[in-house]
Structure formats: structure tokens, C-alpha cells
């Protein structure tokens, strides 16, 4: 009941829906960056939506199966192959004992979710199987997979079968340019009105160093700050604040130059001001952004954020219904 890693890919990690409850000790929620795709992959193979899967970023792994299994790949367009025979994404398929699952070069998106019926059976750490690499916690030995790692599988459910499919209209992917809706707030008052408008007017590009901790963007105009005497303990740069908590999705701009949107492996706090927060409905989209992707930040109200949240939940309900 194992799979063996014959090629690890760029950074392939075990992820589920994460470990809430420890952010006050600096341990982030982690889990799949694109949770919509993660849930879809699990549903396709008859797993609980939050079962542990593999998240492969930009480049797929190669995995040798020692048992027959049902597999589904969602998220990024990275065509799966079983012993070099192409399979479809967003569609469950069978892999026989002795066969190798590998992937074509990435066509679009960034992160593929590889669900196997029964789920990846690594030990639970603080209530989750997700990998938090920076803290060496969870997943397989607290790190990304390497060659010759062996992963155990859980018991597959009775509903697992090949040929189950999710229609394209029930998938989500970022547009071009990608549009990320942001609620201004937190320390928005630190920048001038002109800079605030520029931030939303400018088109930004994803920086190549963007990762699970945060997505960095460049290419927009430098922000100008409202003059003030820096408060005691805040540090001398106008972009500094007294170290505080960082919300998931918060947009910090160190030095006023390059916005960073914190993601699932976020640092829990620090000394940079934040302009606002990308809304929960759009966090999944960030997980599918490649480097250099053109991106706009779109201003929303709290009501707009809640409406978008319901929209995403409705799409997930439609997806569930389509598989019943």
C-alpha cells in the first residue's frame, strides 16, 4: 500500500485543508494553496474533501505504485501519464501496481493536486497532515519529497472508480491579467491618496521568488507614505510598524516597492505595514499564478467580499452535486 517517489518534481508536498489554531505561536495553517482544486481532486476519487493529497508546483513528480489505485489530478494543466500513456486532468483514472505516474510539462496554472483514493497516510501533526516546510512540521518528515521516499496510502472508499469527470465550467482559474480582489484596510492610511489609486491602477507581475509563504509582485509604481514621526518601537522606515500580526492574504509592501501577499505558509507577524487583504474567495487563484503573470488588484468592500465568498461556496456546491 505504498507509492515510491522516482522523481520528486520541483517541490512536491503532502497537503490537506491545513491546521488552524496555532497561528498565535507562529505555526501557519498550511494546506493546499488552491483548496478548491484540492477538494475537487479528493471528490473525484471518492475521498473526504480534506484528505491528504500531493501538491506539485510547476513540475510534476514521478511516482511508482505498488498497489492498484484510483487517481485524479486537478488544478494546474500538467497532463498526467501512466507508463507514458496520457490521461486527462480533472478526471479519475486507474493506475495498476507496478505502473509509474508522471507528468508532461506545465501548460497553464501553477499547482497540480494529485489525489489517490484512500489519501496519503502520513502521521497527523497538530491535527493535520499538511507540510509546513519552514518549521519542519507535518507531511512526509516535515519537508518536500525527495527521490526514494515511500508514502503509505489509506484505505480507499467504495466509491472510488475511474472515469469520473468535472466539467470545465465547474473549475476555477485566474484570468489574464489575473484579478485579485482586495479589501483596503489595516494600515491603508499610511499611503497617500495618489499612491492608493496607483496601486489599484497599476498592472503588477508575479516575481519568480513567489512561494507558499507569500506571493511577491513587482512592476507597479513605488508607494508614497503620509509623513509622520515614526511611533516608538516601529523602526525608522516609513513602511515599518510596531511588529504585529499578519492576516492570511494581507498585502505588505516593504519599503513601498514590492507588494507581498501572504499565503498558506504565512509568517504570522512582523514589522511591515499592510495595505489591505486579498479576500478569501481569491486566495485559491493566487496558488495558480506563474511567475511574470500580469496581475491587477481590484478594490472591494466587505459586502463585496462576502458576496464573492458565497459565489465560491455555490460553485463548490454545484461541483459536489455534479458528482452525486
Amino acid at each position: 500500500m505504498t507509492i515510491r517517489v522516482t522523481q520528486p518534481g520541483l517541490s512536491t508536498t503532502v497537503q490537506d485543508l491545513g491546521r488552524p489554531g496555532y497561528f498565535h505561536l507562529g505555526i501557519p495553517i498550511s494546506g493546499g494553496m488552491d483548496r478548491f482544486a484540492l477538494r475537487a481532486a479528493n471528490l473525484l476519487v471518492g475521498n473526504d474533501e480534506g484528505a491528504a493529497v500531493l501538491e506539485a508546483v510547476f513540475m510534476g513528480p514521478a511516482l511508482e505504485f505498488t498497489v492498484d489505485a484510483i487517481v485524479a489530478v486537478t488544478g494546474a494543466e500538467m497532463t498526467p501519464k501512466v507508463d507514458d500513456q496520457l490521461r486527462e486532468t480533472w478526471t479519475s483514472f486507474a493506475v495498476k501496481a507496478g505502473q509509474i505516474l508522471s507528468f508532461e510539462i506545465l501548460k497553464s496554472g501553477a499547482r497540480a493536486y494529485i489525489a489517490i483514493a484512500g489519501g496519503i497516510d502520513v502521521p497527523m501533526a497538530l491535527g493535520s497532515r499538511s507540510t509546513y516546510s519552514l518549521g519542519g512540521l507535518g507531511g512526509h518528515e516535515g519537508r518536500a519529497l525527495v527521490v526514494d521516499d515511500e508514502l503509505s496510502l489509506g484505505q480507499a472508499g467504495l466509491g472510488a472508480k475511474s472515469g469520473i469527470h468535472i466539467a470545465p465550467k465547474l473549475r476555477r482559474s485566474p484570468g489574464n491579467p489575473a484579478e485579485l480582489r482586495m479589501l483596503p484596510g489595516l494600515y491603508w492610511h499610511r499611503v497617500t491618496d495618489v499612491s492608493g489609486r496607483n496601486f489599484f491602477d497599476d498592472t503588477w507581475q508575479v516575481a519568480p521568488e513567489a512561494d507558499r509563504i507569500g506571493y511577491r509582485f513587482r512592476g507597479g509604481r513605488k508607494l508614497e507614505f503620509v509623513d509622520r514621526e515614526q511611533p516608538f518601537g516601529a523602526g525608522s522606515d516609513p513602511s515599518n510598524i510596531v511588529d504585529g500580526c499578519y492576516p492570511y492574504g494581507s498585502v505588505q509592501v516593504p519599503g513601498g516597492t514590492e507588494p507581498i501577499v501572504l499565503h498558506r505558509d504565512a509568517v504570522s507577524g512582523g514589522g511591515y505595514f499592510m495595505l489591505g487583504t486579498v479576500i478569501s474567495a481569491d486566495m485559491d487563484l493566487i496558488g495558480q499564478l506563474q511567475p511574470h503573470t500580469a496581475t491587477r488588484f481590484i478594490e472591494v468592500t466587505l459586502e463585496g467580499a462576502m458576496k464573492a465568498r458565497r459565489g465560491r461556496q455555490n460553485l463548490l456546491d454545484e461541483l459536489r452535486a455534479s458528482l452525486d
Binding site: F58, M59, I105, L106, P208, Q290, P291, H292
Partner: peptide, 9 residues
Amino acid sequence: IISPLPGTF
């Protein structure tokens, strides 16, 4: 020679 990854060359 094809790039296996996106990024900066």
C-alpha cells in the same frame, strides 16, 4: 532545448 519550468532564465 525546452525549459521544464517557468521562471527567469
